[in-house]
Design a protein around this nucleic acid. Structure first.
Length: 479
RNA sequence: CGGGGCGUAGCGAAGUUGGCAUCGCGCCGCGUUUGGGACGCGGAGAUCAUCGGUUCAAAUCCGGUCGCCCCGACCA
């Protein structure tokens, strides 16, 4: 595979993204439209996201389970808004075992319906609540336009599903899980996100309220990176999810669902990547340190060998993920290769370093000489750990500064159009109707990303209608 | 799903009026190299997306199908 450079982001961001995905070996294309192979290096990033989330799910009392891929078509039809939202993108099995099926089976686009059915059987009494379940699964949505990780026909995700006795509890759960997503995004993926509520138009099909974390990519487009829904009693009523309360009265449960997908891998790529390739946050990087031994001949190679092995062992013992690059290539080639793959730290160990008991550490987040430093071999584990933490922090800071510098407050529709036209995000007081929101989308291409939790307070004048508005909204062009 | 572009070796491309399938990178072997993308010599690798048609002869001309990319409408 050619490693010789990549199209600059400024020239063609889409092209840059595609090239990076394939050149950094994250994914491969397949014969089936919109379906990608997630290659080991890409899958390891997903595994990092996954384990970070799974740990947090367990810590908040959730258990994993697995529900079937196939859903009887009739289930989907029980919740009117839900089926309407999803029917255009369903894949449906009509023939199986060589026979036409009596009831068609939908390949799950999400599992509210099957899980709702199960919950209705599992829940009898208020003592069974809350019921806190998560599943790791693949889902299928027949998308018209696909992009690796960002929107694929089949994708991997987790979907949490919970049932509660009261609306307040369900709401608390919905918000808690949004916090879990934001925490993982910011602390593990170093992706700064804005928490907020979706508008009616952008709300999940069948939900009462939908909350979202929104991230800004380096082309300044918004990426919805995780969503959490308070489903109210809609699914409880459709699937008879009821419990007997302490007063011996039947009550409908309040349910929630929340999901985060392999799209997050795309978010990591597009939040941190630069013109030399990927830049991975240390916490998610499959390889945190790439050790490149430097030698001119076999004698030097032998001389360097022991030092490299010893340091590698120390790093591994400290749970630092490393690789040693003994490939028969020039050092320059290797430097570029690991930069393309986004490895946070490159360590060079050559004859001079062996002699002086040094090693060279080069940071991926600071290009060239600036990011290089000599460190003594004694205490190298701590030096690496500290540097990894700094890189994690710096990637987040860079992304946050970039994002904040590209969000602009607008007072009227003209300002709004200018900001959107320039590709930026617009924030303004908002009190307009659903119809107005659709019109804005039609006229400018920007969608209401969310009503941020973080509000200025008080009231202001709606930038579109001039009416008194209780809160600001965030608009942007989105993926 | 509309409009536009494109499918030739693993990747990127050339292929004129139809006539031996080319080039660069990568891959394999040998030798020289190696602290920012090394070089020489020798090799392997292609039903030219696919199906059909025209023709003595098709990568090339005609038609269908599939897939990919870009721009729009729909979506985690």
């Amino acid at each position: 595979m050619s490693k010789q450079g990549v199209t600059p982001q400024s020239e063609d961001f889409s092209k840059w993204y595609n090239e990076i995905v394939y050149k950094a070996d994250l994914a491969a294309q397949t014969e089936v439209r919109g379906c990608i192979i997630i290659k080991p290096y890409g899958y390891e990033i997903w595994e990092g996201i996954k384990s970070g989330l799974d740990r947090r799910f367990k810590a908040t009392g959730h258990q994993n389970a697995y529900f079937p891929l196939f859903i009887p078509e009739s289930y989907l039809k029980r919740e009117a808004e839900h089926v309407e939202g999803f029917s255009p993108e369903l894949a449906i099995v009509t023939i199986a075992g060589g026979k036409e099926l009596e009831e068609r089976l939908v390949v799950r686009p999400t599992s509210e319906t099957v899980i709702g059915k199960a919950f209705s059987e599992w829940i009898q009494s208020y003592r069974d609540l809350p019921l806190l379940i998560n599943q790791w699964a693949n889902v299928v949505r027949w998308e018209l336009r696909t992009r690796p990780f960002l929107r694929t026909t089949e994708f991997l995700w987790q979907e949490g599903h919970t049932a509660h006795a009261t609306e307040a509890e369900a709401e608390a759960e919905t918000l808690q899980m949004l916090d879990v997503y934001a925490d993982m995004a910011m602390n593990d993926a170093a992706v700064p996100v804005i928490k907020g509520q979706k508008s009616n138009i952008e709300r999940f099909a069948g939900a009462l309220r939908t909350y979202t974390i929104e991230a800004m990519m380096r082309d300044k487009k918004a990426l919805q990176s995780g969503t959490s829904h308070n489903l109210g009693q809609n699914f409880a009523k459709a699937f008879e999810i009821r419990y007997l309360d302490p007063a011996n009265e039947q009550q409908y449960c309040w349910t929630t669902s929340w999901g985060l997908s392999t799209r997050m891998v795309g978010a990591v790529v597009m939040t941190h990547g630069d013109d030399t390739g990927l830049r991975l946050p240390p916490k998610l990087a499959p390889i945190q340190v790439a050790i490149v031994p430097i030698y001119k001949n076999d004698d030097e190679k032998a001389a360097v060998h022991d030092t490299v092995q010893r340091i590698a062992k120390e790093l591994t013992a400290a749970d630092i993920r490393i690789t040693i690059d003994w490939r028969d290539q020039s050092p320059g080639f290797k430097f570029n290769d690991w930069e393309m793959r986004g490895v946070p730290i490159r360590m060079e160990i050559g004859p001079k370093d062996v002699e002086k008991n040094n090693a060279v550490l080069a940071r991926r987040d600071i290009p060239g000489k600036e990011g290089k430093q000599f460190v003594p071999q004694a205490g190298i584990v701590n030096a690496v750990k500290t540097l990894l933490a700094h890189i994690q922090q710096n990637l987040f800071q860079q992304a946050e500064d970039f994002r904040d510098g590209n969000i602009h407050d607008v007072k009227n529709y003209d300002e709004f159009k200018q900001v959107i036209e320039a590709g930026n995000w617009a924030r303004g007081w908002w009190a307009a109707s659903d119809a107005d929101e659709r019109r804005v989308k039609e006229e400018t291409g920007a969608t209401l990303r969310c009503l941020p939790f973080d509000q200025p307070g008080g009231t202001g004048q709606c930038f579109l209608t001039g009416a008194t508005a209780p809160r600001v909204a965030l608009f942007a062009k989105a993926y």
